[in-house]
Design a protein around this nucleic acid. Structure first.
Lengths: 190, 190
DNA sequence: ATATATCTACCTACTAGTAGGAAGACAAAC
DNA sequence: GTTTGTCTTCCTACTAGTAGGTAGATATAT
């Protein structure tokens, strides 16, 4: 067995959350998808809240690891931002993951279990912090000319990315993501 | 009777959709909120898909009317954009409507009934068209200096607005909306 | 022998939706 | 001016199906 049942469950659940949010899937959906009984899923994840919490936890950790790896391996703040955006561009283009799990859940924030909500919030904080650090480095190296503080610009960029995902989905136009985020990146360059 | 039952149902349903999306509410929720039996709601709106479709229809029509009224009454493209953003800023600040109905539903696009999905898409098209026309007017009057075409800039602005709503909700910071959208507006001015 | 993983079978609560009837409003027919 | 029929609205009572979750047996692996 090269992938544990728990991982299969999380993978399927992640796709389902991306497609329809917290209330948009059920244990029966997961059951159907991986050929296991509903009760068996409860063995791995006793409650739905717990399942999604673990799912978000895994997602945020992977995201943080990925972003940090990117900051180490890709040279220069401009390249790092571009690499981050490219990641999402290809995810959306090939439909492997056409939306951010946490962006999806954030829209339902008000009716999410508390533990899930706080994990989602932390992902937003992490992402904003990463963008801030990259923008700050770029500004210090005179590669970027920021209109506001790195923190402010990071929030603007993050909102553009999530808004672009939403527009691409709403208008069923996969190229729209890059068409929106591209210019926002370009504008930063000094 | 100064408000029909149908309108009450739509009002409650709209709040529920804003809070939790299409799958985040039930007829029972509406029933509880306005003191009417579930079956009576089915009399006014036979199916949930129909209810939400009418709801979105009403929303898009109001939005279009509001935007057009704004374009007529508020002088100058800059003022018009500012008025549009101010509308949402106050909605979010006083929590009367902390999220756009169609932005909420757009995130669930993939599992929405077809009729609802197409109505949501049309709202995005309408809003983009309105923003485009205002940006175009501003550019022609040399009030704005646009980096790209009015269409492109409109998509960027729309994404910023929706992304800012999402960030404000995710981070539970009502002032974040204006902090993100404000600079995006300012940047347009020539 | 014990821990892990899966199963069958079940539960309660809730889902959207239906059937059929009661109460009132309104108009036309007598 | 009362009766009749129709329309609207809301009701009680119900259906079939699904939600998340549980109990307990069985299998497997260490």
């Amino acid at each position: 067995m090269e992938q544990t049942t728990s991982e299969k469950i999380l993978d399927v659940a992640q796709n389902l959350v991306v497609a329809g949010g917290y209330n948009g899937f059920s244990y029966a959906d997961i059951s159907d998808a991986i050929g296991i009984r509903k009760a068996s899923i409860h063995h791995h994840f006793p409650t739905k809240a717990e399942l999604v919490q673990v799912l978000v936890d895994r997602y945020t950790q992977r995201a943080e690891a990925g972003l940090n790896a990117l900051r180490e391996r890709v040279p220069g703040p401009a390249g790092q931002l571009q690499a981050y955006v490219n990641y999402w561009r290809t995810c959306i283009l090939d439909a492997t993951e056409p939306f951010c799990v946490c962006a999806m859940l954030a829209s339902e924030m008000q009716m999410l279990p508390d533990t899930v909500a706080s994990h989602v919030r932390r992902h937003f904080e992490n992402l904003a912090a990463w963008l801030t650090s990259v923008l700050k480095a770029g500004a210090e190296q005179k590669l970027f000319r920021l209109a506001g503080s790195p923190e402010e610009e990071a929030q603007i960029l993050m909102a553009s990315v999530h808004g672009a995902m939403l527009s691409a989905r709403a208008l069923a136009d996969r190229n729209l993501f890059a068409a929106i985020v591209g210019p926002q990146l370009a504008r930063l360059k000094a």
